[in-house]
Design a protein around this nucleic acid. Structure first.
Lengths: 238, 238
DNA sequence: CGGACCATTGATAATTGTCAAAATTCGTGG
DNA sequence: CCACGAATTTTGACAATTATCAATGGTCCG
């Protein structure tokens, strides 16, 4: 179960400094906010929030990553977001008081910083620049959703695979002389549920790309891409 | 082309009162804001904004409706939003100064109220409650996008058709003794581009539903639904 | 080293897209 | 108000893509 702890060594490096929405605040303000924060730890596979749960706090990911997803009536999972270090969720529900519209599950060991609804609202009034940051971040997230909708809607699976590789390369990739190495945030099944296709289809497409020399699987979670240009072509960016 | 006019009879009834984000303001404040607004008119089929255009104002739909969409490399259109009376767009780009991430086209004759970037930002500072309204509305919009992503991602076309009928029933439907009449905001092709399927597939599914007695086409833009419960079942809400 | 979990592959079925033609609807002008 | 032409929609036949089911092969971690 989720462990609630008040970390002794929770210094400035942790939590706040990683979080873009607090980036405009100075050290003193940060120190004040620190006191308001609750910390939680979750193991891989644990659920932070269930779809439909009432949300009474904003959750900021401090370490690790999580997936936000919905389950349909017939049991299929559609992944909406992967939140990593510095990302936050739960903000939509603060004003309207709505229940969560998705479930959130830890993809690895995860540490979070939680701010209660009340505390968060007070922050917004005290530091209006945070509201601007949030509107900005929500805008980014909407743009990503819009792109995802386009990618999935237009339904050519090759494009979608290319698209996810580009997205992950940017977020989780490291470049070296021989190419870009992507550390995938989740399994083939996860990728499938992110793209809205069957697990086996992902396997087949990856095999095909491997045969064509476009990607090289190092292991189940890491792939090497010698030439990102080819991926861009596959994603449909002429 | 777009006609720019300063409407003489633009009284309180128009523009402001319809717009939820201004709903907390009192009459005097509204009157002040009125002066800042530019009005535009567009004919059906006219483009208000092209994908990639720099956005220097927030556009509020005052009359009519528009579609916001993207075109893929291979020429497919994916519709992201239908904005009707009281909806607004262009707000994402105000802070980041980004170009528009989609095109916007009038579905009917459309009248808009435009607020320049600078004026809008001043409003936000003067009336912080507008910022809260906007965060709220963006939250709603994100929830819709998330639902759309799930609907499309899970890819059972029947579910998608059911989903769009529910959505349109809520937005554009009128109830009477014999059922719910939906005035569709766009053609079969538009529906297809909203759902991410082929035009012909929409036709076939509608025909099928007609044969099953679940819907009755009155004409190309209007359908009668005797029992919404059946639609909910088709949409996948057991 | 073993067992659980995850990924791949093959064969087949189901769904949906594509192309082409026919039917219907819509809007305009008489 | 009707008629005509243009545009949209429907239907059919077929092809392509992807899901499903089942079996096999790999990988990871205690």
């Amino acid at each position: 179960m989720a462990v609630h702890y008040n970390c002794a060594k929770c210094n400035d490096r942790l939590c706040m400094h990683k979080v873009p929405i607090f980036s405009t605040l100075d050290k003193d303000d940060l120190r004040k906010i620190m006191g308001l924060i609750n910390h939680h730890k979750y193991k891989k596979g644990e659920t932070l929030v269930f779809d439909g749960d009432p949300m009474d706090s904003v959750v900021i990911i401090n370490e690790g990553s999580v997936k936000a997803y919905k389950i349909t009536a017939d049991g299929r999972e559609q992944i909406l977001y992967v939140f990593s270090e510095g990302d936050f969720f739960g903000e939509q529900n603060l004003f309207s008081g709505q229940a969560s519209t998705y479930s959130v599950e830890a993809l690895q060991a995860v540490k979070t910083c939680n701010l209660s609804r009340k505390q968060f609202q007070e922050l917004l009034y005290r530091f209006p620049e945070i509201a601007v940051k949030i509107i900005d971040e929500l805008g980014n997230r909407m743009t990503r959703l819009e792109n995802a909708l386009q990618t999935i809607g237009v339904r050519n699976v090759d494009n979608r695979i290319g698209g996810i590789l580009l997205e992950f390369a940017e977020k989780y990739g490291t470049k070296n002389e021989i190419g870009t190495i992507i550390h995938l945030p989740f399994s083939r099944e996860g990728i499938a549920n992110y793209l809205g296709v069957a697990r086996e289809t992902v396997s087949r497409k990856f095999s095909q790309l491997e045969n064509e020399g476009v990607i090289h699987s190092l292991n189940n979670k890491e792939i090497l891409i010698p030439d990102m240009g080819k991926i861009e072509a596959i994603a449909g960016f002429h």
